[in-house]
Amino acid sequence: MAHLQETEHKDRLVARVRRIAGQVAAIERAITGEAPCSETLHLAAAVRGAVSGLMDELVEDHLRAHVAAPGLSDAERAAGADELATVLKRHMR
């Protein structure tokens, strides 16, 4: 996401992705370690929630930078909206 110039914001997103990676690794350990089904399901539900939260933040960032930012041309706004619509269609499947 080229518009994520702010280092602190980028660092927070990367930290969030790394936490999600750790959660996915915990699912793998639960499966290979034959953890109870309920534990594995809870871990998977937590990952889904974490990814959903990340997606929400990324969508908001894109919306603010490529659709709602002052100074964008109508063509730039339309392109930003089209990109977002494409991603949301894929996400909603």
Rank of each mutant, 00 (worst) to 15 (best):
M1P: 15
A2V: 12
H3M: 01
L4M: 11
L4D: 08
Q5W: 08
E6F: 01
E6Q: 11
T7Y: 04
T7W: 01
E8A: 03
E8Y: 00
K10N: 14
K10L: 15
K10W: 13
D11S: 15
R12C: 08
R12F: 06
V14E: 15
A15K: 11
R16N: 14
R18I: 08
R18F: 08
R19P: 14
R19I: 06
R19M: 06
R19D: 12
I20M: 01
I20P: 12
I20C: 02
A21W: 02
A21N: 05
A21P: 06
G22E: 01
G22M: 03
G22S: 04
G22F: 01
Q23G: 07
Q23R: 04
Q23W: 00
V24Y: 00
V24C: 08
V24E: 05
V24H: 00
A26W: 00
A26N: 01
I27F: 00
I27P: 13
I27T: 07
E28S: 12
E28C: 09
E28H: 05
R29D: 06
R29T: 06
A30M: 13
I31C: 03
T32S: 04
E34Q: 03
A35K: 00
P36C: 09
C37I: 00
S38N: 02
E39S: 08
E39G: 06
L41I: 07
H42Q: 15
L43H: 03
L43C: 02
L43T: 03
L43K: 10
A44W: 00
A45V: 04
A46M: 07
A46K: 09
V47A: 08
V47T: 11
R48H: 14
G49I: 01
G49D: 09
A50W: 04
S52I: 12
G53I: 02
L54E: 05
L54V: 03
M55Y: 09
E57Y: 00
L58T: 15
L58W: 11
L58A: 13
V59C: 10
D61Y: 02
H62D: 13
L63V: 12
L63T: 15
L63M: 14
A65G: 11
H66T: 06
V67F: 07
V67D: 07
V67Q: 07
A68Q: 12
A69T: 11
A69N: 06
P70N: 13
P70V: 15
G71N: 08
L72M: 01
L72V: 08
D74V: 05
D74T: 10
R77T: 06
R77L: 01
A78I: 04
G80T: 10
D82G: 07
D82C: 05
E83W: 07
E83P: 09
E83V: 14
L84W: 11
L84C: 03
A85Y: 11
T86F: 13
K89G: 07
R90S: 14
R90E: 14
M92C: 09
R93Y: 00
